[in-house]
Design a protein around this nucleic acid. Structure first.
Lengths: 207, 207
DNA sequence: CGGTGTATTGAAATTAGTCAACAGAGGTGG
DNA sequence: CCACCTCTGTTGACTAATTTCAATACACCG
């Protein structure tokens, strides 16, 4: 989609930095494969993860207005991204209304996602936050059905990153994950996750 | 600014609904005076506030992509808003590059704000969340300096709303507020708030 | 002067965080 | 190929924080 505005496409390895906090920003990035996480230090020195970006997602939207990145972006696993320069993007928008509404729509989606994140990243008990996180991730990743019709999905990020995203300590996250496994709501093997009974899992989240 | 794209301007009373959850969305709203809050039910039945919008802020950005509001918007106190229709907005963008980048910039600012909210809406102890909330609000509201050079600001929303925004119970919020008052970090009279010593308050937040 | 909704306060129960020790996986070098 | 090292994740006991439940105070409006 919109191949003519892609400036370049490149690959990142695990841990590679796509951009750094405070860096000047002249382009957006769209994830093609893999995963990007964004993170930032809090004012009391903790590190928190502010988002995970999957294929199709745009990274860097927060920097469009003042062109400075408010966070750093790191690849979780092997990742490919496309680079979309602002200036050529804006220039193309002028001549192509469709492109313009595509961008606005994409940014709006991003805002909606963040907004929804706010709904469940705080407040509710940690066990629900963890379960919802995996249900949401499963949905976003799509996953591939195996012979039994179950969908497994690969989780490339470190557990510590998930904990930092959910505002939990690694210990609390680990305990909750163990509990969810023992309840049979999640099956875990290495980085492969399976939700054996979606209906039951949804019920457990209160839905 | 951009008067020609304002479709209409109207006033709301306390508690009036600007739009409802799931409602069809054909326009953005810009707050002219007063305050708008957005809220939503969580899947377990709690009500949470997802944002407070002050004069200049755009409300409804999350709905741009699929044109359905993901939350409801309510006026906190007497409020005036401008309505900006999507279609005419997009049409105007085509002919006016400046308008287009203004919109993109505004949406990006919104995203950045949400992103920063995520940084402090969870995790940190409740006392810091409360203090930071008021420091942030003070900065956004601007406030008016009195004879002593201190800036007081009026807080139109209910305390319960703030609690729901910060993912705290009203009780916890109330206790923290009482503590901040007793520490002399906040002065409160009715809805008027004063931060007597900004430096000390910032230090207390860990900054 | 009630009356209703909102805010505060207290004590108990629940939850998450902290600190410390241990286990496992992955990588490096002998 | 194995031993070792390091980083990450797990588990346990303890501590600190927040929520919950219940009662009371306060403010606004009729």
């Amino acid at each position: 989609m919109h191949h003519d505005i892609v400036q370049r496409r490149f690959a990142l390895e695990t841990g590679d930095q796509l951009f750094r906090l405070g860096g000047e920003c002249t382009a957006l990035f769209q994830v093609c494969s893999g995963m990007i996480k964004t993170q930032r230090d809090t004012i009391d020195g903790d590190l928190i993860v502010t988002g995970f970006y999957l294929p199709g997602d745009l990274v860097g939207i927060e920097a469009l207005s003042d062109r400075v990145f408010p966070c750093e972006a790191i690849a979780c696993g092997e990742t490919e991204v496309c680079q979309l320069d602002f200036d050529s993007l804006l220039a193309s928008c002028a001549s192509r209304p469709g492109l313009n509404s595509w961008i606005i729509s994409a940014i709006s989606c991003h805002a909606r996602r963040k907004d929804c994140d706010l709904s469940w990243s705080g407040g509710q008990p940690s066990r629900l936050r963890v379960l919802r996180f995996f249900l949401d991730l499963r949905e976003r990743l799509g996953g591939t059905a195996d012979e039994g019709g179950l969908i497994s999905f690969k989780v490339p990020m470190k557990k510590q990153d998930i904990a930092r995203y959910l505002h939990l300590t690694p210990e609390t996250f680990s305990r909750n994950l163990a509990q969810l496994k023992s309840e049979g709501l999640l099956l875990v093997h290495k980085n492969e996750f399976v939700v054996p009974d979606i209906g039951r899992a949804r019920t457990a989240t209160g839905n």
